[in-house]
Every structure is written in C-alpha cells, then in structure tokens.
Design a protein around this nucleic acid. Sequence first.
DNA 1: CTGTTAGCGCTTTCAC
DNA 2: GTGAAAGCGCTAACAG
Lengths: 341, 341
Amino acid sequence: MDKNKKKASLKDVASYVGVSTSLVSFVLNGKGRLHRVSEETIAKIKKAAEKLNYQPNSFAKSLREGKSRVIGVVLSDISNPFFSMIARYLEDEAEKYGYSILFASSDENRDRAEKQIAHLVSRGADGIILVPCEKSEKTVEAVLETGKPLILIDRYFPTIRTNYVCLNNREVSRLATEHLLTHGFSHPGVIAYDTTLQHMQDRVNGYKQAMTEAGKAGLISESRVKEANLHNAISGSISRMLAEGVDSLLFATNNIATEALKVIKGKGIRIPEDLGIIGFDGGNAFELFHVPVSYIRQPISLLAQKAVEIIMDEILMGEKMTHQVEVQGSLVITESSIKSC
Amino acid sequence: MDKNKKKASLKDVASYVGVSTSLVSFVLNGKGRLHRVSEETIAKIKKAAEKLNYQPNSFAKSLREGKSRVIGVVLSDISNPFFSMIARYLEDEAEKYGYSILFASSDENRDRAEKQIAHLVSRGADGIILVPCEKSEKTVEAVLETGKPLILIDRYFPTIRTNYVCLNNREVSRLATEHLLTHGFSHPGVIAYDTTLQHMQDRVNGYKQAMTEAGKAGLISESRVKEANLHNAISGSISRMLAEGVDSLLFATNNIATEALKVIKGKGIRIPEDLGIIGFDGGNAFELFHVPVSYIRQPISLLAQKAVEIIMDEILMGEKMTHQVEVQGSLVITESSIKSC
DNA sequence: CTGTTAGCGCTTTCAC
DNA sequence: GTGAAAGCGCTAACAG
C-alpha cells in the first residue's frame, strides 16, 4: 500500500506517537524496561514502528556506535569448492550473531589481498577472517597493528602470533601415509603445491614423518607443483615418480588430486594396482571416478564455526587471548588406497 | 609506526593543513579543480591525507549520501558450484564500479529469501541481484514496489515485469535434444526438478519442442524429481524410463546430472550404449566420469557481467527501462551423447 | 518516566 | 579560493 516517499525514521515514529526520539530508540532496542518506560508507551511505540514499517538506518547506527555488524572475509577464490563451502558455513555462523559477511577473493595474490583487506576495513568491517596467501606476513602484521580483530583460517604463520583455525595437517597426513604403508603399498610419494605456506609444509612433513617412522626415510618422494600449468606439472611429477618406483601418492589438496585424476585417466594408470591414491576434501569428482577415491576429510563446518566463534568473542567481548585451534581431519577410505595382496 | 589511537578523520587532516573540512572534502573527492581550490592547497591536502593515512568513514559517507556502494546478492546456496562461480564473477564485475557485494543464501526457501532481502536492504544495499526461488513472486514484487533497483539472475517470472538475465534455456535444450536425435538416439527423455520455476519449464519445453519437431511427440518422456532424496528419485526415474524404451537423457541441472551419474555408475548402465546423456554446466565430475559427459555450457561470466551492468545502470544513472536478456548457451559434446551406429 | 541535546564523520550550499 | 554551518538518522548522557 504505502508506497509513499522515503523510509520512516526514528523521528517519524516519535512524532507519530507523540514522544521523543530517545524513548523510541530505547524501546526499539529493547531497553525500554531498563529505562523504565511505561508499558503503555512501549506498546504504542512498537505498534507505530510496525505500522510505519520502520527500519533503522544502519549507517546512522554504525556511525554512531562505531561498529558495523559485518565481518570481512578474504579468501583465495570463492569459486573454489573448498572455499565456497567455508563461505557458506561462515555465513550461517555469522548469522547466529546477527552479523553479515562481506566476501572478497585474493586469488592468492598478496597485493590484491592487501587491497581487499583495506577495502573491507574501510567499509567498516568489525573483524577480518583471512585465508592468508604466501609471503603475506607483512599484511597480516599490519592488520594486527590496527587492533582490528583478526583470525586466519585454513593456514597460519608460525612466526606470527595470531588467532587461527586450521586442520591438524601434519597428523592427518601422517595417518594417511601410514594407511598406505599398511595397506599394500611400500613406496608412497606426495605431491604438494610449491609454496612456503606452513599448512602445505605440514602436510608434506606428516608424510615424511610417517615414512621415517616406517624406516623408509630413504624412499621419501616429494614433488612440488605450481598452480600455473598444473596439469602438465602433475603429469610430469607422476611419470617421474612412477619411474622412481613410487607405488602410491598422497595429493596435498583437492585441486591437485582432481587434476591428478585427469592425468591418471589420460595415462591409463590403473588404480590401485599401479598406483594407490589418497586425495583431499572429497567431492563428486572423487566419487564418480571409476575407482572411488580415498581422501582426507576436513570438518569444514567446524573450521567455520570456530573461526566465527573466536572472532566474535574478540569483537563482542574484547577477548584478548590468542586462540590457535587445530581441528581434526579424518580418513575416508575406499578402494583407491587399498591393494589387495 | 603510528599505531596511535583512532583513525584520522576529515577534520584531522583539515586542521593539520590549516584549512576547513570542506576544502579537504572537495579535494579528496577529486572536485578540487571544480571548486577552484589552489594547486598549492590541493597538494598540501593530498600529502596530509597520505601522511595521516586518512581513510574516509564509509558510514558517514553513506549516511550523508544515502547510498552504500554495496549490492546485495541473494542466491540459492553459495556452496553450490554454479552459484559460487556466479558469485565470483559478480564480485569481479562489481569491483569495476567500486562496489562490494553482500551475499546471502536463500536455500530455495521463500521465507528465508524474504528475510535475507530485507536484511540486505536494511544494510543499505543500493540494489539487489536475486536468484528467485519458487513461488516468490510476492517477494519480488515487494522489492519492486520499494523502487530499489533489482535484477533477477538465472531465473525469472513471466508474470512479472523485472530486469533479468538468464540462459536461452528453451533454445539450448532444444538443440541438445536435437543433437541426441541426430546422433544415434531415437528416444530421448528429460529429467528436471519438480518446480514451477520458469527456467525449468523452459528447459523441459525445449526438449519437448525438439521431440515434436522430430515428429516424436508421442515419445516424450519427462520425469520430475524433488531435491529431497534426489538420488533415489533419480534412480527410480532412470529405471522407469529405461523400461519405457528411453535411450538417452537430458539432465536439466548440474546437480541432477551429477546425481544421475552416481546412479548410472551404481546400476552399471553403459554410456552411451545403453544410454546417451547430456548434462548441465560441466565440471570436474563430468570430465572424470569414465565416459566424459556432454553438457550444456552456460556463459556464467557473461550472466554476471550483464547483471551487474544492468543494475549499475539503474543505480548510477537511474535507468528506468526494463532489461531482459537471454545469454546464449552452447553444447560441449563428447562421447556420452554420440552413439556410433 | 520522558525530553533535550550533543555529537558520530561527512557533503554541500551559501556566504565571504 | 576558502570557511561556516546545516543536517543525514541514530544513541546516550544528562536534565528534569
């Protein structure tokens, strides 16, 4: 009906009821009781607000209160399934606190990440959830200096004292490797991204630890690939490693695993006869591959939940402790990583 | 260094330079020339702003200007690959205009969508990009009444005059069906979601049109499945249709196609001997299936680009024409839809 | 119990 | 060329 002019303001409902704006403000913010506003006026104000379809102006509110009820999230690329799952859970978690999420993609590019963070901050984000990219320590430290609540997710920098939530990468990779070693494979290898990011080191180190513990330090076969031209890089790695006698592989990310499956399909490598494999994060591609692919499962919802919980603690209650949490991954095992022998 | 107190405000740089806030405002908004501010002061102000690391307060700005430079986007579920791709392109496109995107997921739930939209509007979104869910005409019309710029994406309501961008669903589905008919299949069927949403009707209608044009109206085999318990629904559909003599299938969405592949794998149906298939939107799962899967490709980046372009026209220049654009899909053909005979 | 008032930081009109 | 001042809509301290 009333598709009249502008939205109703606090003042509008105040004058409509015939009271001052403060009363309206109190009542509408649930502080009516606190300020001992009479039940009668409370009722009148509420009714009027309803009737005028009053919607508080969030800018005025934010300007006044100095907070926005928005969390900024910078991740690598929201179109990557792993991150889009994270995004979804972050959205749901934040909603529980009445917060919205402003997303931005960094494309693993340090400058871009910096720009995005600055942008989110200037948009008034009350806190930042960040998937940091390689060599972005400076950027992270800069945010820290700001005092703006920050939490890293999926990755962290051992040299920087920040909040973070990530997978128990080392341990779960160790377990995955151990699984291969105890299920018919004697020479596992690992393919990981060529990055200095700690989570990637952890995954590789977990593999190495398992190998060492099995007395096979001499058989450690590690290959690092770059994102650019991933397919060819992986193709080369796999050929080389097979030639070296590697009989099984741990792929350190979902992307690597998926691309590796394409290579494997192209080369006609038999799974698990020629090569046992374990990937990361699952997905339809793993399920639909002619041999279902074993993988390391991350509790993505838990990652998101913890991240929001921790940053909200800091935003809302000024919690100043540093929280560093590792969530537990698990192994989802299918035929691709079991050699019958 | 200066990890001092608060952020610098306009006033701070003004008093630092020794001029009024108006000048600073003019200069920093590039209107220095326009207001004939002396080159000298322009330089001084810019330097000071830099030095004090001045960042405009976006709330004050928005409050004053009545706009937020934020576009609200409500889609089904950002963790769905199709939508997360859209999200990414929307983000990139909006960035070109200096706009940010606030995402929200509706889960195909009308009430939730309504809430999300209201939330985004109350957050001051300058416009809304919406993937409308079933029977949400009222919601859409309500937004329209608001006068808030709105564009639907991926779907539309034939009964409502709105901006929208979507695929040429009918035509491309017709082509896909035609392709099956001319490549060794005589009895194609279609599996689509059980929804009244027009894009889904269009996809099915395209199929029907092709069948009719081929003089096979009598062989039309259509199956509708619900999202809940998708796997079983599809499993049942496929069994039934095969029994009816259907020798090929068009899957009307990526989800349906992916789930169908799982069914096909489970049942050991041979592709394309027993069944020719064409899916929607591609993806790794299609590529890695033992027979690469043909599919209808949507130009997702174009969808996003058009959507942002149109809504920005309306936001920035008050463009009042209704834009309804259909982007062209294309067929990506592999062995799954060609029967050698 | 209720009203007045002073800003939050910014843009912009109008005056000098 | 530059400055003063109003006011966007809201909250909250302070007065009654």
